[in-house]
Amino acid sequence: MTTLTTPPPVPPSAATRPDGSPDTGTRVKTRDARAGWLFLAPFAFFYALFLIVPTLYMLITSFFNTSLVRPGLGSFAGFANYAEMFGRADFWSAMWHTLQFTLYTTPPLVVLAFVFAVLANRLKRGQWFYRLAFFLPFVLPSATIGLIWVFIFTPGTGLWPTVQGWLGMEPTAVLADPSWAMVGIAIATVWWTIGFNFVLYLAGLQDIPRELYEAAAVDGASPWQQIRSITLPLLSRTTTLVVLLQIIASLKIFDQVYLMTQGGPGISTQVALTQIAAIGFTDNRIGAASAFSVLLFIVIIAIALIRQLFERNQDRSA
């Protein structure tokens, strides 16, 4: 192996080359190449097997009548699976519910996380307490969150309808009501994941130099003015990141729906991924499920690309 060969004596001038590479001899080059691939091999192996191959397989099967219960790809279907998706009412309703979930969760998750982080950042004491309260739920398994919130929303006797009664409101059977079920899932999700955005904002706030606030205070700016004209604009980069990550995560929602409503009542909370799982694993129709997956995939990649472009732009202007 290459490690057994003694490295060629390095001339001092080469060792101190500014770009840090000690030598450009061909022997070192091939040694570099072989070592590079050896170091990458284990990761690349799993990467190829569990990211590239499934992606290609998904693309291929989306053009075939592949079934879970028959071996092989099945007959060629052309664009039939895609055409079927665009013609199915439940495809559009699943897409709409996914969008609905995104619209319900993104604004509160961004705005509340921003407010909590800005307020927490001003306070000298109790940081650990706020972090515990807001961030700890994010670390917990979705299954725990599901069990807690289904119980809280128990019609009639749950904590939610009870508090509604105390406040003189008409108690709602949140998860059993088609027009409220998605709201219930959104509330549980906001509670669960706000800590993620909270710590991203806290990290962003650390980067704002304190002198800016001090200077503004000297000029007589009120705390509210400081937040509006210093914090808000300087955190715009974090906000973009938070919003885009939020949208991508929302499009991939599966756990909360699976655990809290199973897509019900009726199909009122059926989202893209639960629908894909149903088509694939319940109807055994891999081809159709793949076509749906590819469409969801395209939407997610598009948003991820927007994020990359955005970051590149900001890097350039920074």
Binding site: G36, W37, Y47, L51
Partner: peptide, 28 residues
């Protein structure tokens, strides 16, 4: 390390960041 194919690997990996693993559950 500098090795031939490094840029291709780099590009493939960057694309991988965007791939949502959850969507791959059926083929996986």
């Amino acid at each position: 390390l500098r090795f031939p194919g490094r840029n291709l690997v780099f590009l493939l990996m960057i694309l991988g960041i965007m791939v949502p693993a959850q969507v791959l559950v059926v083929p996986t």
